Simulated assay, not measured.
Amino acid sequence: MQTSETQRIIYYCANTVEYRSSSGNALDATHDHVLFNVGTRQPDGSYTWGLTQTALRPRLQPGDPNYHPATPNWAAYHICDPDVVKGNFTYTTPQTGEKTYTWAMFFTGADNDDHGADGRFNVVGVALATSPLGPWTIVASPARSFVTTAGLTPEPFLPDSGRFLHNASWAYDPSRQSFVISRDTGPLDGNEIQTDVEVGRIAGSSIWTGGGAWSVVGRITGAQTGYKWNHNSGLVRDPYGGLAFQGPLDYSGADVYFATEPGSGNTAPPWDGYFKYRMQHSTFPLSGLRGA
Rank of each mutant, 00 (worst) to 15 (best):
V17N: 13
Y19Q: 15
S22V: 14
G24L: 03
A26Q: 07
A29C: 03
T30L: 13
L35H: 11
F36T: 01
G39H: 03
G39F: 05
T40M: 04
T40D: 02
R41S: 10
Q42A: 09
Q42E: 01
Q42K: 10
P43I: 15
G45Y: 06
S46M: 06
L51H: 13
Q53G: 07
P58D: 11
P62V: 01
P62R: 09
N66V: 08
H68T: 14
A70F: 02
W74A: 01
W74H: 08
A76K: 10
Y77E: 09
Y77D: 12
C80L: 09
P82V: 14
D83I: 11
D83R: 09
K86H: 08
G87L: 00
N88M: 08
N88L: 05
T92D: 02
T93L: 01
K99R: 10
W103M: 05
A104P: 10
T108D: 03
D111I: 01
N112R: 06
D113G: 01
D114G: 06
H115W: 09
G119R: 04
F121E: 05
N122A: 15
V124D: 03
G125N: 13
V126I: 10
A127E: 04
L128I: 12
P132N: 08
P132G: 00
L133K: 14
S141C: 09
S141A: 11
S141P: 01
A143S: 04
S145R: 12
F146H: 12
T149W: 10
A150V: 07
G151K: 08
T153G: 13
E155K: 09
F157Q: 07
L158A: 15
L158P: 05
S161D: 00
L165D: 13
H166N: 12
H166W: 14
S169V: 09
W170A: 05
W170R: 10
A171T: 03
Y172K: 07
D173R: 14
R176K: 07
S178I: 13
S178E: 15
F179E: 10
F179C: 07
V180Q: 09
V180P: 11
I181K: 08
T185V: 05
P187L: 02
P187D: 09
N191Q: 11
Q194K: 14
V197A: 06
V197F: 01
I207G: 10
G210A: 06
G211E: 15
G211L: 14
G212A: 12
W214M: 05
S215V: 12
V217Y: 13
G218L: 05
T221D: 02
G222T: 12
G222I: 12
Q224R: 12
G226P: 09
K228L: 02
V236M: 15
P239C: 08
G241C: 13
Q246P: 00
S252C: 12
A254P: 04
A254L: 06
V256Y: 05
Y257H: 11
Y257Q: 02
Y257K: 08
E261L: 14
P262E: 07
S264L: 11
N266M: 01
N266P: 01
W271E: 15
W271P: 00
F275R: 04
F275A: 08
R278E: 07
Q280F: 11
H281K: 05
S282C: 08
S282W: 08
R290M: 02
G291T: 10
